[in-house]
Write a protein that binds this DNA or RNA. Sequence first.
DNA 1: CTGAAAGCGCTTACAG
DNA 2: CTGAAAGCGCTTACAG
Lengths: 338, 338
Amino acid sequence: MKKVTINSVATYAGVSKKTVSRVLNNEPNVSPATREKVLKVFKELDYTPNPIARGLARNRSFIIGCLYDNPSKSYITRVQSGALEACHKFGYNLLIHPCELRGEALIENIEQLLQTSRLDGLVLTPPFSDSKELVAFLKKKGLPYARVASAIEEDDSISVRSNDEQGALELTEHLIKLGHKEIAFIKGHPDHSATELRFSGYKKALANHGIAFEPRLVAEGNFSYHSGADSAKTILDLNPRPTAVFASNDYMAAAVLKLATQRQLKVPEALSIAGFDNAPIARHIWPGLTTIAQPVEEMTRLAVEHLILSITESPDMVFQTVLEAKLICRESTAPLEK
Amino acid sequence: MKKVTINSVATYAGVSKKTVSRVLNNEPNVSPATREKVLKVFKELDYTPNPIARGLARNRSFIIGCLYDNPSKSYITRVQSGALEACHKFGYNLLIHPCELRGEALIENIEQLLQTSRLDGLVLTPPFSDSKELVAFLKKKGLPYARVASAIEEDDSISVRSNDEQGALELTEHLIKLGHKEIAFIKGHPDHSATELRFSGYKKALANHGIAFEPRLVAEGNFSYHSGADSAKTILDLNPRPTAVFASNDYMAAAVLKLATQRQLKVPEALSIAGFDNAPIARHIWPGLTTIAQPVEEMTRLAVEHLILSITESPDMVFQTVLEAKLICRESTAPLEK
DNA sequence: CTGAAAGCGCTTACAG
DNA sequence: CTGAAAGCGCTTACAG
């Protein structure tokens, strides 16, 4: 079983290899009859072009890289899944590259990645999508990129996000409508732009309903479960204790629930808890967490699709979209008991 | 800023490009002086070889593929992390390829993957590592592979797993020592070889302690949270109700805990619950789950390291290792109350 | 120890 | 509409 290449196909079909190449790439200037003939030989010989040879000639790798540094496994898996869907649609593959934003020499790390893999483009997820330094570097290198879930302003690029502020506002209003006025808030990681947006949604909802914002009710988390546990302790030790807690993601909310349960504080009767993201854990625990669902797969899919289009067709494509976040009510929030 | 290639380096250093290639690949037959000179030019020109050109000449892609179909996000993330560590150590990159074992045309799917990406090797995780059909296909294709966490016998390959049976035995003995005799068991997915091993460890422990095995205490799960919820219902409805439940992974154990909590069954006082895997959820819920920790990252790292070695050095390497699984006691198991 | 030639399997730029 | 030549940036096989 010999290797079948463009040459074997050309010989077999009785045409030049340039003609085979034309058929391969759907180029014009091939007579229908010739095209048919070549396509038939493709089938007969079970030919598929070698992407590496193609890559060398066209200076392409047909590989998209995905950058992330995120404590949430479920978030990462969803990002990967959306990215893969887009890649496979266009015959690309996905290479994953977790790394640390704060790690010394992020730029060096990325530089090495580019040298060893010659990616055609890069999808940035938070907190990388928020890094102006990284974006500047990629621009300088001329490497196409797309940003997911970032709110930083940068008009000449591809960016898909969901409406974090609106989601947080709706979730907070849900709590307010249940009668809560003392609503604690746990912030996310300061490197993520979503952190400020969610916080701002919370504050706007309070303001809309004439509830004074109280800094003492705000705890600084960083999206990790561990930081949620620390914040939970601070909040549950407050006197008077708030009647509801809104954590900036579900992991931190789960940590609040765990501590409340340990302390025999009934949830939701004595304390309402809400999260953000609709991570699997939100429905794997009891009571299930009220939360905001973001279309992470779709955000990433759209971002990568446009990234690939920008690589293959229009180099200076601009695409900016905001998708909707949705309130999911479960058992962890309930009317305030008097 | 012109592209710097092996040619520019050769010209600049005043040697032939073959000599540069020798230095690049650490080949012998280069005088120390020449080597020094070339290495210096590498630095001066900031040269790094183009992996795509290298790949075409050597018929290599420097990419390892990772195959999985697993409901557990945390398991996948750990697999990826171990695989990446090994890849980066040898200058390889990792391409991920989730797909379905049962999907129609698995082989076709893999065939296409190989055509579009020209992988140098493939890491198989459960349930793929247990698929004889897939292994036979890869052998036929001559594609190097390594199997992770599989117990199927196949001597001429690379395989790393942990001792599932021993782990399950220890966990069951832990429950028995706490006084439990009525211990329900939730099985995993039948396509995974770990499923039978864990089940067998459970039965051996019972036998070792003179406790009769009761089929009525066994529920059929498939490792998903959902299947755990179904099994939980079956088990908690039993009359008499068992005093302990051992689920084949933590997600299913979490489902049992959720249902028990909903039914106001105190855990661990009225019901002990144990899982397997030491997934993050095991410590994110209250009470934390007693479970078995497997070194998933290390298993995968070792497998991929040997896979790469087998690709670059010894084509018919055989490497078979069994790592240890470890009992982790948390709050979900307690002495039987009389 | 060193190098000139040919080749990996494609595409680009040009000619007809 | 079709093709011969050159090239992408490396390595292999050979000669000296």
